[in-house]
């Protein structure tokens, strides 16, 4: 019998394995380096305040109530804008997903208007609705509307045709096919669309507030920049980032409970 040579192992690698501590270490190291650079005077505090200064600014803003005032002002625009845009977008998008005629009518218009950066419409909306809240809410609603339409009707398309055939073959009335097969089947796509529309809403609220508002995080950040209060400016940016994280965490929780079957 000849010599037995073991087969060399050459698998493994590339498969993602969880590394729970690594992200925190990276975070800590980056912030530590930043703080060290600021403390040693390498970073001029006027252009790049230290993490400690930003935390201090955040704390002060929290204590004197201005933080909540601005966050509340922004939320009062985001929430109604997002709800109006989402409701209208779902109505139109689902109609386009269900009825061929609605799709034929709606698709060209939606495709034509979707690429317009909605902030460009703010001046027109101010002209129509005035400088107050309605024009900002309308900008957000418009910005949310189009991606919602597109995600809703593509979500309807993604429901396997065979499930609909199955419903027809068991004699389900059209209404039941929509409520029991099409809508639940489209739910993952619709909820994924919410993530996109929520980030659009956040973007637009900041932009709209920078153009014309006394309060709101966008206005606050802009004013802080004009006054060279960079610690406050970056504190505002941190608040925006936290807001975005909270929204995406909330949507994730909704997805997990609605889509438990996945």
């Amino acid at each position: 019998m000849s010599e037995r040579r073991p087969v060399p192992f050459r698998g493994g690698g590339f498969a993602p394995t969880p590394r729970r501590v690594v992200p925190w270490i990276v975070f800590a190291v980056l912030i530590g380096l930043w703080q060290a650079a600021s403390s040693s005077g390498l970073l001029p505090s006027l252009f790049m305040p230290s993490p400690a200064a930003i935390v201090r600014a955040l704390y002060d803003l929290w204590i004197d109530g201005t933080l909540m005032e601005h966050v509340t002002a922004s939320l009062k625009r985001i929430v109604p804008g997002w709800i109006i845009g989402t409701a209208a977008g779902l109505a139109v998008g689902l109609a386009m997903g269900i009825f061929s005629s609605a799709r034929a009518a709606g698709l060209p218009i939606v495709s034509a208007l979707f690429p317009i950066p909605k902030i460009a419409l703010l001046p027109v909306l101010i002209l129509w609705l005035g400088i107050g809240e309605p024009s900002k809410v309308a900008t957000i609603a418009l910005g949310v509307f189009f991606p919602t339409v597109i995600s809703a009707y593509t979500a309807c398309d993604s429901v396997p045709r065979n499930l609909i055939r199955m419903g027809q073959s068991f004699g389900l009335p059209a209404r039941d096919i929509v409520t029991k097969i099409l809508l639940p089947g489209a739910m993952p796509g619709i909820l994924a669309g919410f993530r996109i529309s929520a980030s659009v809403a956040l973007l637009l609220v900041v932009a709209a507030e920078m153009i014309g508002a006394q309060h709101g995080i966008g206005a606050f950040v802009l004013t802080a920049g004009n006054l060279m209060q960079t610690d406050q400016l970056l504190a505002g940016v941190v608040v925006l980032s936290v807001l975005g994280l909270l929204i995406s965490w909330g949507l994730g929780a909704i997805e997990r409970s609605v889509l438990r079957w996945r």
């Binding site: 396997p160 065979n162 499930l163 055939r165 199955m166 073959s169 029991k180 097969i181 639940p184 089947g185 739910m187 889509l259 079957w261 996945r262």
Partner: peptide, 11 residues
């Protein structure tokens, strides 16, 4: 019908 791909509603 009984379908090749079962056509079950996953939810």
């Amino acid at each position: 019908y009984i379908f090749q791909d079962f056509a079950l509603l996953p939810w």
